[in-house]
């Protein structure tokens, strides 16, 4: 969406490459140790862009829905980057907060556009185009069951996707998109599950309404921006009886420590679906993740076999 926006305004967009180990370690060397992993990775990405561009765009996303806020780390992101990476190019930071009313939002977008053009109509056109692109992207994911990287690839027309083959089990992954789809951090979890002939479901494959109603069933009104992805998706998948749910979170994530616990307790109460929570950090080794994954899949398979035996 932002890419369309800037390109419409005639800017060239440089997107940072996929995460590497170097990025993670460089990012973590800049901040205090107990900063959460996503922030460290983020800073690694910024560092990789330092010489490549004139501006870096880091919005402070305060809230995108009324009375639901994002976590502190997102709010402080532009300022924190400025503080720990003094050599970075000028940062384009705008504050997105729908609680302050539409006017505030429009002004923020306009202010952002002013860096590229003086013409307010051009900014308006660009944002409309960006919004269309975003809607198309959302629709691709929820209707066709694509993961965000797949959807982006499809939109830019890069690859033709092959239809999923026969499946052993259906596994739902819940967690923040920046963890699930980061192949380095999550140790290619999605790929590994698919290799083992499992069908993978992610929060983005549900519609907003499904997510919201599931969140409401467990905790009432959401408090965090990402609550729908974790609690909503978790509850939805637990109740629709998929074969297993894996909750992915990172060490030091404040909201997750609470939300994942709620999902965990729900899973324990339902006693129907196998649930595993994986906590990732920069020291997590691939071997450890793979072992736990294998054990988890074995458990699901055994459970399925037993159910069949009972039926017979």
């Amino acid at each position: 969406m932002w890419k369309t926006f800037f390109e419409e305004l005639g800017a060239e967009v440089v997107v940072s490459p996929p995460t590497t180990q170097v990025m993670v370690s460089e990012g973590s060397s800049r901040v205090v140790a107990d900063t959460c992993l996503p922030v460290k990775v983020f800073l690694g990405h910024v560092l990789s862009l330092v010489d490549k561009c004139d501006y870096i765009f880091i919005p402070a996303v305060r809230s995108v829905k009324s009375k639901i806020y994002n976590c502190s780390k997102f709010l402080g992101l532009p300022d924190m980057t400025k503080a720990v990476i003094p050599e970075s190019p000028p940062i384009l930071d705008i504050e997105i907060d729908v609680n302050k009313g539409k006017r505030h939002l429009y002004q923020a977008i306009y202010k952002l556009g002013r860096h590229f053009t003086w013409n307010p109509f051009k900014v308006r056109q660009a944002s409309l185009a960006a919004w269309q692109a975003h809607l198309k992207y959302r629709q691709l994911m929820s209707s066709q069951g694509l993961t965000p990287p797949q959807a982006i690839a499809k939109m830019t027309g890069e690859v033709e996707l092959k239809a999923p083959t026969s499946t052993q089990a259906t596994i739902a992954l819940i967690g923040h998109p920046y963890i699930l789809y980061d192949e380095h951090i999550s140790h290619r979890l999605i790929h590994r599950l698919e290799q083992a002939d499992n069908k993978v479901l992610t929060p983005e494959m549900l519609t907003t309404e499904e997510l919201e109603s599931a969140t409401t069933r467990l905790v009432g009104k959401a408090h965090w921006t990402y609550e729908d992805e974790v609690v909503g998706a978790g509850v939805h998948y637990l109740e629709t009886r998929v074969d297993g749910v894996i909750g992915l979170m990172t060490f030091g994530c404040g909201p997750d420590s609470q939300m994942m616990d709620m999902v965990h307790r729900r899973a324990a109460k339902l006693r129907a679906t196998t649930f595993m929570s994986l906590t990732l950090e920069e020291h997590t080794t691939e071997g450890g993740v793979v072992t736990r994954l294998e054990a988890f899949l074995d458990m699901i398979n055994r459970r399925k076999r037993r159910q069949i035996e009972v039926c017979v």
């Binding site: 901040v31 107990d34 976590c71 502190s72 402080g76 924190m80 503080a83």
Partner: peptide, 27 residues
């Protein structure tokens, strides 16, 4: 407190301010 989100942001920013005063962070 350990893992306090706002204070981690503050801690990261504080070390780069130009005001020169020693700060000891205790988690």
């Amino acid at each position: 407190p350990f893992t306090c989100m706002p204070e981690i942001v503050a801690q990261n920013i504080m070390s780069s301010t130009k005001e020169n005063i020693p700060v000891l962070t205790i988690l």
